[in-house]
Design a protein around this nucleic acid. Structure first.
Lengths: 233, 233
DNA sequence: CGTATATTGATTGTATACAATTATGTGTCC
DNA sequence: GGACACATAATTGTATACAATCAATATACG
């Protein structure tokens, strides 16, 4: 297992962060759908921690807008509107070609290997009919590129955008067009490995446009599930 | 006995946000300098709230990287390095011309008036030799433009960048070049009022480059003050 | 029968109490 | 005098308890 060289010195034991990551993962993998109420007591019981910890985790997730906190009403998995969806992809089209370009300039062999392993994982997830996990891994791929780019601030922004994109995909994704991903990611890694910043930026841009246009902005209701069922690992 | 309906009385339950804003303001106005330890008990006593509230506020500020939280050690006002300073201004040069362009397309007369009042306030603060407040207001001006642009996500990013810029200015600003601001902001508002997006974007870009080049990246120690003295308003 | 109002229940907001970790100060030994 | 070890104090991390607020149901009234 390779360590992440650039951005996050993820401190190992922090109950709050662990809970936050667990919830975020569940959202990314679409095990809990947008709109779901995230009760503090309920989550505390599931993870075996007190409300204090759950609360901090939820506030952390609220800051990256994965959940929305309404005063005195509680936390809910965020439901981006169509307008927000477009906005987020616009922002990605602004930032990510830049990160791809910088990544091409900075990437080490280790970085390339990591990206390739991400692609393999993603492919496997698709093969095993686990689309939620595939979406999550696809997002990790983009975040990883931002980290390689070495611009901590922008990488943080990209991470936020990816997180919200996951919600958007849960709400507005049109299932038919799912395969393009793998080849796009492969080509991108190749450009980065070649150190060809221009090509990497272009590929990233067109990849994002593809994603963007694959959204179906009609309403689509998603079936709810109980938290215990979804999170009770 | 019946309570008045539909009266949106501001519930005093925004305690956390109030404290967070108070601390953020103090940092923005350079009343507390980078590196200062922010003890939970101490802050709780100053604002008359419990550590629970202070803790939440500090974590919120940590998310926008105004403070840095070290596990089991406490919260400190963040100290961006020179590299981070450059990075942040790069990010601003990427995002803010875009917000200026969108603002030019969207701005109402009301928005323009608001921006002009911001400029007046900033000018007054400079006239009354209150540079900390001027820096703060200058930042608000940029955030306001992002808000007018209507892109919530990007506006949030800009807000974070402005916040950190305030820290950077506290650490690396070269005092001699302070006056350029006002004219730059004026010209920018004019372009926005005219609906000239291209010009607004250009002006914003050059304005940011000016700021960027006005940084002095040599080390400079800033004198510390006690929290009670700085915050006890 | 429908609407409006009071009461109840559940959930969040805040404060306090306890546990774990880190920083500090003191004494001993070299 | 300096370095190390231990004890003590101070601070943060977490859990629990209480207060405030909101949603929902029940009840009274037209």
């Amino acid at each position: 297992m390779t360590k992440l060289p650039t951005l996050p010195a993820k401190s190992p034991q922090a109950a709050t962060e662990k809970v936050a990551e667990a919830i975020a993962l569940a959202i990314h993998q679409h095990r809990i759908v947008p709109g779901t109420k995230l009760g503090e007591d309920e989550l505390g019981e599931i993870y075996g921690v007190s409300r204090t910890v759950v609360r901090a985790a939820l506030q952390s997730l609220a800051h990256i807008r994965l959940v929305e906190i309404k005063r005195n009403r509680g936390a809910f998995v965020a439901q981006p509107t169509r307008a927000e969806a477009l906005e987020i992809f616009e922002a990605r089209e602004l930032l990510e070609p830049r990160t791809a370009r910088s990544a091409a300039a900075n990437a080490t062999l280790e970085d390339i290997a990591l990206l390739e392993s991400h692609i393999r994982d993603e492919h496997n997830a698709l093969a095993t009919a686990d689309p939620g996990r595939a979406v999550h891994l696809s997002g990790l791929f983009h975040v990883e590129i931002a980290r390689i780019a070495g611009q901590v601030t922008i990488a943080g922004f990209v991470e936020t955008l990816i997180a919200r994109s996951s919600l958007i995909i849960a709400l507005y994704w049109r299932r038919e067009s799912a395969l393009c991903e793998k080849h796009a990611h492969h080509a991108l890694v190749k450009a980065i490995a070649d150190g060809d910043g221009d090509r990497a930026a272009d590929l990233m841009r067109s990849h994002l446009v593809d994603l963007h246009t694959a959204l179906d902005l009609r309403d689509r209701s998603v079936p709810a599930r109980s938290l215990k069922e979804a999170l009770g690992a």
